[in-house]
Design a binder for these strands. Structure first.
Lengths: 346, 346
DNA sequence: CGGCAGCACTCGACGTTAATTAGTGCTGCC
DNA sequence: GGCAGCACTAATTAACGTCGAGTGCTGCCG
């Protein structure tokens, strides 16, 4: 959309949005003239607002009410008016504090991240954990539990851990398994899951000629491991109660939709997945994520990564009148911090 | 409380409760006489209802409204009127189906259980996972990840798995760790976490005289493992959206309280923990769990166990007018089924 | 010609009143 | 003791008037 607004138009749009973010109420020309020293009279403001309404940036809930920013209005504001500043020092410090002294696996870190995002933003914090299928293998370990039960532990770079229990027909000793482990780690380390699957098939073909029963058993077991894989996408959600603090969700229907979306995690996964391949903070406003049943909500998200490989995304979900200028830097900083922590973990 | 009700009183109380469970509306004498063939006139029913109100079993929302069962009324009903039947065959079959063909670790089973409880009851399903501290060790395994990083995998009976990453100062080879593993599993298998802690201290004391560096390192590492333990109690909650289907939660405040309780899982843990030492299905009605911020809700819970050792509890949370006669057998059956599955897993 | 004071108009919010309705408690008869 | 009849009560709903916030428009002024 090519809207060309003069400076006055922009300043008024900005003021409307700021006030609306604060109060969640339609804002009128008088209030605007008083609270924000724009040095123009209410009457003039009214004229400008009428223009902004023609552009589709503002709307009136009813004929004689104040103006409310539309989704496009917010989009315009975010894209062309808002200047994103650095995260304020104290806020940065608060976030840092939450993470100190926690050496743990990735799952813990990510869970914590969603809590931090939620408590700092006072909205909903979400974290999409790395896809199992995009995991890069650091180490694969089989442990004998019982005559017919084997525990497989897969450790990915960045500390992702996956356990799985496998039932087998023939009994295997731990010594057998240790040999498997050495052999498998040798050929599989550094590959991602898809590459591993390909490699296993390859190895199996070659194996036909070698007749090494150890190799053959190891490959068989590994492929069992991967086929039993329920490719569950983990999403951590925290702070859903915060929704209750915002009057725009006072009616049940809106609330229900959102909670439904949260319960069927696949919706969130699809939503957050969109930012996997984009760098920097991505923003989805209101109706832009209608398909996710989350009209009325904005999503501010950023991917986190290890080196050049993006792992997952994290972000904040709130009402469309979320405080963009405050939350964007928070999400940005948290994504970078989490990336950093995961990189240094393993 | 020693309330002595004649048969007519009981029948009317039961009818009121049944109707209230169905409609969530105060029920009047006329409706009662018409819908339930009690063979008495509305006027007489009124008299009886007045008596029941004196006993505190029924209440009037306002002077000229119908009657609503009180929490004590429901308690009385559950304790002395309700006859708990076996779970209906088809329902049992539905539950069974959900679990077939899933060989997995306990965490998966429990998560699934909460989903099943929720979808079958159309209320909220909750499962309290076994306490880490009450876990009985099946196997402990250290795996070398990196120069200074070791992965500890603890497998409990019933398939509970705990991972933890430990940082160490001195480099240890996998061969060292294998020796640790053999030694530790030898002395620790079959002990629960508390017993293990005691045993480790004991061994350390004895070790002072033996000067075996392997033993000393192994013990040191194990104790590191346990002290890094954040004793997080896992709770699986599923089906929170179902709350939106019940008119009694139409006002926000009630809803907010419940969601708050769910977010601070420690509240739920305390609640569910009460049933850990009781056999059979336990029921908490409305104000009985006011302390958990869940007045207006009933909790129907039962513990699940492996052999004689109780592991955790599972149950259903719904409005106080939850259909007790249908849900109680469901919870009972699910608890037994989960126990059975966990027993046979490991 | 842009800005703005003034003014009539609009529409939701709120409070009042009245009609409706579901359901009670009580009285007195069988 | 059971119950028909009746007066009474309180929530619910609709209709109506008032109030106030806020608009759009007109026309004046620098």
């Amino acid at each position: 959309m090519d809207i060309n607004l003069n400076d006055r138009g922009r300043r008024i749009l900005e003021a409307v949005i700021q006030d609306y973010i604060l109060t969640a109420e339609p804002v009128g020309s008088r209030t605007l003239a008083k609270k924000y020293n724009l040095d123009i009279s209410p009457a003039t403001i009214r004229n400008v607002m009428a223009d902004l309404e023609d552009f589709g940036l503002l709307a009136q809930p009813h004929a004689s009410a104040g103006r409310v920013p539309t989704d496009s209005g917010l989009r315009f504001y975010v894209d062309t008016i808002l200047e994103v500043k650095d995260i304020p020092g104290p806020e940065q410090e608060v976030i840092n504090q939450e993470f100190v002294g926690r050496t743990s696996d990735a799952a813990q870190i990510l869970k914590l991240s969603s809590k931090v995002l939620s408590s700092v933003s006072r909205h909903i914090g979400v974290v999409l954990a790395p896809r199992f299928s995009s995991l890069v293998l650091k180490q694969l370990e089989f442990v004998r539990l019982d005559k017919r039960l084997i525990l497989a532990v897969l450790v990915g770079v960045s500390g992702m851990i996956q356990n799985r229990i496998i039932e087998v027909e023939e009994e295997l000793s731990q010594e057998d398994l240790n040999r498997f482990n050495r052999y498998l780690n040798d050929i599989l380390e550094g590959l991602d899951i898809n590459e591993i699957k390909v490699r296993i098939v390859e190895e199996m073909r070659q194996e036909k000629n070698r007749f090494d029963s150890m190799v053959s058993q190891a490959l068989e077991l590994t492929s069992r491991f991967f086929e039993s894989g329920e490719d569950e996408d983990d999403v951590y959600i925290e702070g859903q109660v915060n929704l209750f603090d915002y009057p725009e969700f006072a009616d049940m229907e809106a609330m229900r939709n959102i909670f439904t979306a949260f319960e069927d995690k696949s919706i969130l996964v699809r939503l957050l997945d969109q930012t996997m391949n984009a760098s920097g903070v991505q923003i989805f406003i209101g109706s832009e994520n209608r398909l996710a049943g989350m009209a009325g909500c904005s999503v501010i998200a950023s991917r986190y990564s290890s080196g050049s490989r993006s792992l997952g995304t994290l972000g904040v979900i709130g009402p469309t009148r979320i405080n963009y200028s405050r939350i964007i830097p928070v999400v940005d900083y948290t994504a970078k911090l989490v990336s950093h922590i995961l990189e240094s973990t393993l």
